[in-house]
Design a protein around this nucleic acid. Structure first.
Lengths: 241, 241
DNA sequence: TCTCGATCGATACGACGTACACATCGGAGG
DNA sequence: CCTCCGATGTGTACGTCGTATCGATCGAGA
């Protein structure tokens, strides 16, 4: 008998395996269970706590068990990333591209702040839930007279801003958590020695004035939304949409 | 005699130690030498190749030697990050804020593409060379009638876009390097099975059209600069500068 | 010359990712 | 009902990592 149409599971991508019809009989483990457990660990204790051994413990299983479903730790991270992207729940209730971009941006920010480890994850691996994002955006941009390249540029521009902004926000949060600072004021007192040393060099006069005069240093949402409005304004103006 | 003004070196920050006048006598190791070696390894073989042991080998020294200058691997990464930020060489030759932001953006992109591992580094640790960036930007924004918060918002907005954009660019490059793809076409053939499976689900019709129609998919510089112009336009328009 | 603190080396420990061979389960074919 | 086989989970082991600890060694001030 010649070759079966059945393929070697190891040669299939993670996503093909994930959607295979028969979930297999024994199934104490599934990709979903693995993803949920890994995400739970990462949410609670950070990405460094996500260990193949720790994951196995959490699943009540031997350290090597998960390797039947995931080819290595990198694929585990892919699985986690795709799983969380499912939380974005993109809806089709708006035809206005700008409003759609705005809610996508704020929702992305919310999801990432909820799963701060996401920011350390590789971008642009092709996973089903990640692909749904550009699909949604491109579809709202359709019919405005933009060519394909420009439509994608709009998507990339807004996405890039969101990612960068959330990244710095998370970076700050992470430092505060590590050092046990609960408020912006606590952080500033904690940072005071280092900061006053830097300021004492006299190399940062303008920054020093910013420190004295600014009043919204601890309002990341204001900062995020002002930047987002700038970006959306610029896209609309330059591309005439 | 009561307490000396000399402090316990372990309690000083990395940067205070770095600029202490006497570099110590024996000095086969210095923070600079350490930073250079670590950066060289990361540039050549990626951040994962930067190992305390590997670094020591490269410096011709015992594995634990560098710990005299760096409190742990995290501080080594800080040191590397600050070192590379020194390459930005911010100049004061422009008073026009927009031109200054533009050259900062393109230069940042260039430096990061030269040191792709930078993108995986924690943002916003207070290091001298990193602080020089907002200082430069704020000083060009000075005197345009913006309050301190808004000036900083401009800086953050542009910086966020740049970081996000470069991050996705580097992410793609990294995947291509890992899989040994040299051109965009090679990458597309390599990705073809996965992509055609995803497209076969019928869930991404607009994205599919983009794939057919787009002609600048492999022109990251065009994408970067278009987005940057949008962001700068938006900042200028919304803030009236 | 002696001493003392700053450097650097040697050794060791626990945790990590994962290769590999083995045990075990559950359903299909007789 | 039995048997067998592939899919699933286990046990063990190896090499590498970050780094704690302590001892050796060097240079300069007394």
């Amino acid at each position: 008998m010649p070759s079966q149409e059945k393929q070697d599971p190891a040669k299939l991508t993670l996503w093909e395996r994930l959607e295979r019809p028969a979930p297999a009989p024994r199934a104490t483990l599934t990709p979903q269970r693995i993803a949920e457990a890994a995400v739970a660990i990462a949410d609670a204790e950070g990405l460094d706590a996500v260990t193949m051994r720790r994951l196995a413990t959490e699943l009540g299983v031997a350290p090597m068990a998960a390797y039947r479903y995931v080819n290595g730790k990198d694929e585990l991270l892919e699985l986690m990333t795709d799983f969380v992207h499912g939380e974005l729940s993109l809806s089709d209730d708006t035809a206005d591209w700008r409003e759609a971009m705005r809610t996508l941006a704020t929702r992305t920010r919310a999801v990432m702040l909820k799963h701060p480890w996401m920011i350390r994850t590789v971008v642009l691996v092709l996973t089903p839930n990640q692909m749904a994002v550009p699909e949604r955006v491109l579809s709202t941009l359709d019919g405005l007279g933009l060519d394909a390249d420009t439509m994608m540029a709009v998507f990339r521009t807004v996405t890039s801003y969101v990612r960068g902004a959330v990244e710095s926000e998370i970076g700050l949060e992470q430092i505060m958590r590590e050092r046990g600072w609960a408020s912006g004021d606590e952080a500033r007192t904690g940072l005071a020695p280092q900061m006053s040393w830097l300021m004492g060099t006299g190399r940062y006069p303008t920054y020093r004035r910013y420190l004295r005069e600014a009043t919204r240093k601890d309002d990341p949402q204001w900062q995020f939304e002002l930047g987002l409005d700038c970006v959306l304004d610029g896209v609309a103006a330059r591309l005439g949409i």
